Computed example of a mutant assay.
Amino acid sequence: MSALVLHVTGARPNFPKAAPVIAALERRGVRQLLVHTGQHYDRNMSEVFFQELGLPEPDLNLGIGSGSHAAQTAAMMTALETVFLEERPDLVVVYGDVNSTLAAALVASKLGIRVAHVEAGLRSFDWTMPEEVNRVVTDRLSDVLLVTSADALVHLAREGVDPDRLHFVGNPMIDTLLRLRDRFDGSRVVAELSLPTTYAVATLHRPGNVDDPTTLARMVTALREVGDRIDVVLPVHPRGRQQLAASGLFDHPRVHATDPLGYLEFLGLVEGSTLVVTDSGGIQEETTVLGVPCLTLRPNTERPVTITHGTNRLVTTEDLTQHVDAVLAGGGPAHGLVPPLWDGAAGERIADIVVAGLPG
């Protein structure tokens, strides 16, 4: 029987990264299985992505759902071990930095199955972020490290990773963005909210921003001040819905909450916006390519290339409105160069590397 590649996805950020890799391997006739852990299970966080991105329906949906980091990761490991023992893949491909990625890498490594990590080497150097733990452990366990930016190569070299395991391939999430850009359409949301031509998009979900009451209060105050200047649309992530609603943020007449949006609708809304306020990693990359000023409410980023080659700036709740004013005055982040190899062909490069490493 031909070699088997098994992909593990689980959360919204995984899907646009996996789509071009799966498609490129399909064109090469590689036998594949797609496992969805169910880490994100809201339709607009999961199911709609498979439809819009042209992903095949998952061969298996483990339906793990939410829980504490320990409970969720443990449940994923138990379920994935059964799948890996039954299917005996030659390679497990994991994406990004979510709990599904860590769980799959741990199980595959203990079973002696090779692991390829797409988006390896990103570092925020902030160990309070669960994602940083997931990144570092996954990279340590991976046999094939597929890197999206040159800074990640530097991090991995400093950590002593064998250079033969490193491959600078570019960013497959940008493959998806470029392929579908002409289908982006945020007009429904614009019409429903009666948004003016000038509006901002905000996304906030990190525990450091929405779980601590003191930090949340500062963030709400800052966003209400932004709302004094420009309409703000905030698709509400399920994990932050209750805290944000209770905070009074949406009592402001120019701060508008929506349900989570599908990929095409959300990026259509972003592409038409004047600026984005976020704590998301992926949106820092997407706005870099779309040329939309991005103000990241975090003290650090694992994607510094979006600052050196893009439109991203790190901001605080204290200076957020200052940066918003600069953007509105035309003095905000200018569109920089697109980072190297963010050219729409990362999936093809990854597929070539995967195929070269498969047995027989």
Rank of each mutant, 00 (worst) to 15 (best):
N14K: 01
A257N: 07
G38Q: 08
M219G: 14
I174F: 02
V324I: 09
V21W: 00
V189I: 15
L249K: 04
V226H: 02
M173V: 07
V210S: 14
L62V: 01
R165H: 06
P13V: 08
R179S: 00
L267G: 12
N171R: 02
V144M: 13
A257E: 14
L337M: 14
P293W: 06
R218G: 14
A24V: 00
G208E: 15
L275N: 06
P359G: 02
L234A: 03
V255L: 07
Y199D: 05
L223Q: 05
F266I: 15
V289H: 05
G160R: 08
R239P: 07
R254E: 02
L111K: 02
A19L: 06
V115T: 06
D211K: 14
F15Y: 14
N14I: 04
R349A: 05
L85T: 11
E271A: 15
N171V: 09
H205S: 10
S273E: 10
I113R: 02
P16T: 09
V315E: 10
S247I: 07
H36D: 13
G336S: 13
V226G: 01
D211E: 15
A334L: 15
A329H: 07
S194N: 14
Q243H: 09
V98R: 03
E52T: 12
A345I: 01
T288H: 01
